[in-house]
Design a protein around this nucleic acid. Structure first.
Length: 552
RNA sequence: UGCCUGAUGGUGUAAAGGUAGCACAGCAGUUUUUGGUACUGUUAGUCUUGGUUCGAAUCCAGGUCGGGUAACCA
């Protein structure tokens, strides 16, 4: 009866490795972000993969910051990355930094020089580019390629000691300038950067390149399965070359296809641009595809994990429909979000046959999906707010809401019938008059009336006010990454709409930051981080599935 | 143009030589005091050409198309 879920290709490799007793069947992964930006939804895929694999196979997963470029990295990013991973629900076994290993990595470089496998090159970067050749044209050796070991050792030591300015020389691995794989044409493995590092300060003025730090860090931590994205496939040759020449722990690299999602930008560089040019409020702007943005928007970690599980792991390029993320979100929120009523675009409704000044307390369930969620009290009276969209002067037959002579149910209250309405000079509806049917009271309906529509409402005298922020997609095109021109050209002009005076029900007064609700018939909303008891602010997380919208 | 990769409905992802399945999206319907939820039904797919085989999405050969790759970034 237990349905076996099929394995993805990495799980297959791992299970094979375990079966063969490689590394005593141990599984140790790592998540290796560079702290040069905030984590986005694409990183969630890698996080769920790496931490998920460790969990599934009773292994370990390290968090390791790939901090080898001091010019781009900052502690703010380190902190945000840690917060985001934890929020997603994962705990790392070790918190490491590539910069922890600078001494060891330096030692690896010296070892390579001593084996005659690395040399200091004073060619300019232009010359080095020429030496590289092209995909079809073999490269040529640098004039500095055959320096003696002693000279290389001396030069490299002086590089470390700060005797040279940035860019004067680099350390290169001595591999093969005619290699089919361009990466293997004597790659740079150390460069000079007189820059302060966020952790090592001014201790170093030379820093290893990715290819001479990442794999080495994997080895030092005895990572068994080093999982990265497809664009690192050509680097695997070098990864393995270093392990072999240095005779260090043989971690293995495996590559999977990164996440692409419709209407979403995944480039950290471009996201940084949105922040710097203030097209959004910051990295955690609810429109951003960052983990912190989704958090502020009201997404749940459960829904993001479920999404990552559903999209699968494979090697072919993909473009996931963002509606799948939406589905996972709604699916979870539907189960956990308390129901409340709010009126975003209010118009007054007067119940003409309801006694002036009278009120009634009604009971409303907090969540029909959850018996244990309990009930709350609602006040009903003569004057109510309803949604402007819920009234039409000349409704079509498919319109199940209010219009002259039409009947609807007010949720948790009575059935009403529209008897009259008022307009101002511009034709804007200013007031709707209805009569109610006292015997149609919710839960005890004796009226025998049948209506097609049910509407949300708020009692004028007791409703509270709040700011509500409505979000739409940030980009107008399905694949913003493919857009060549200015980002501004494809930015959705109405990605944010602020409703400064929306009405909400009194039960929402005590709502705290990050609390999530379903505003009946409107969608899911969560309390913004800048919300206060004086001024409540709600972010729209996502709408409800709306099958009526398509009819219109 | 070299090297590396990949190709299954609109989008993802399974099927390890034996009935092409699942999810999202779409469409239609049932239920409903949320035009929500739930439930039911349904449309739609193996890049191509050959070969091996009783039998091919799967194995082999050629082709086509897509992606990556020529940073002192990661």
């Amino acid at each position: 009866m237990s349905e076996e879920k099929s394995l993805n290709f990495i799980e297959e490799i791992i299970e094979k490795d375990i079966a063969e007793g490689i590394h005593e069947g141990r599984v140790h992964t790592r998540f290796p972000p560079e702290p040069n930006g905030y984590l986005h939804i694409g990183h969630s895929k890698a996080i769920c993969l790496n931490f998920g694999l460790a969990k599934k196979y009773q292994g370990k997963c390290n968090l390791r910051f790939d901090d080898t470029n001091p010019e781009k990295e900052e502690v703010e990013y380190v902190d945000s990355i840690k917060e985001d991973i934890q929020w997603l629900g994962f705990r790392w076994d070790n918190e490491f930094y590539a910069s922890d290993y600078f001494d060891k990595i330096y030692g690896f470089a010296v070892a390579l020089i001593q084996k005659g496998l690395a040399y200091v090159d004073e060619s300019s970067s232009e010359d080095m580019a020429k030496q590289k050749g092209t995909p079809t044209l073999a490269g040529t050796d640098s004039p500095y390629r055959n320096r003696s070991i002693e000279e290389n050792l001396d030069l490299f030591t002086r590089m470390k000691n700060g005797e040279f300015a940035d860019g004067t020389c680099v350390l290169r691995a001595k591999i093969d300038m005619k290699h089919d794989n361009m990466i293997m044409r004597d790659p740079v493995i150390y460069r000079i950067k007189h820059a302060e590092h966020h952790r090592t300060g001014n201790t170093w003025c030379i820093y290893p390149m990715y290819d001479f730090a990442h794999g080495q860090s994997d080895s030092i931590e005895e990572i068994t399965h080093s999982i990265c994205t497809l664009e690192f496939i050509p680097h695997r040759d070098l990864y393995n070359w270093c392990i072999q020449k240095l005779e260090i722990f043989p971690s293995r690299q495996y590559e999977f296809a990164r996440l692409n999602m419709t209407y979403t930008l995944m480039s950290k560089r471009k996201l940084l641009m949105l922040v710097q040019q203030q097209f959004v409020e910051g990295w955690d702007d609810p429109r951003m595809p960052t983990i912190s943005g989704f958090r502020r928007r009201g997404y749940t970690p459960e829904s993001i994990r479920e999404f990552c599980d559903k999209i699968g792991i494979a090697k072919r390029d993909n473009m996931i429909d963002i509606s799948l993320l939406d589905f996972c979100l709604r699916d979870h929120l539907n189960k956990i979000a308390l129901r409340r009523m709010a009126v975003l675009h209010p118009v007054k409704l007067i119940i003409t046959n309801y006694e002036e000044g009278k009120t009634e307390t009604l009971s409303a369930e907090n969540n029909p999906e959850d018996e244990n969620a309990g009930h709350r009290a609602l006040t009903f009276g003569k004057e109510l707010w309803i949604e402007r969209e819920d009234f039409m002067e000349n409704p079509s037959k498919k319109y199940f809401r209010l219009g002259p002579g039409l009947q609807v149910r007010l949720k948790h209250a009575y059935i009403i019938e529209c008897t009259d309405f008022k307009k101002d000079a511009d034709g804007t509806i200013t007031e709707i008059h209805c009569k109610y049917f006292p015997e149609s009271k919710s839960g005890n309906d004796q009226s025998g009336l049948k209506v097609k529509g049910t509407m949300h409402w708020l009692h004028c005298d007791t409703a509270l006010q709040a700011e509500v922020r409505l979000y739409d997609r940030l980009f107008t095109v399905e694949n913003p990454a493919a857009h060549d021109g200015d980002l501004q050209e494809i930015l959705h002009p109405k990605s944010l709409e602020v409703i400064s005076k929306a009405y909400i029900e009194p039960a929402l007064a005590a709502a705290k930051q990050q609390d999530r609700f379903q505003f009946l018939r409107l969608g899911y909303f969560c309390v913004d981080k800048n919300s206060s008891s004086e001024k409540l602010i709600f972010n729209k997380t996502t709408g409800l599935k709306d099958s009526f919208a398509k009819v219109v």
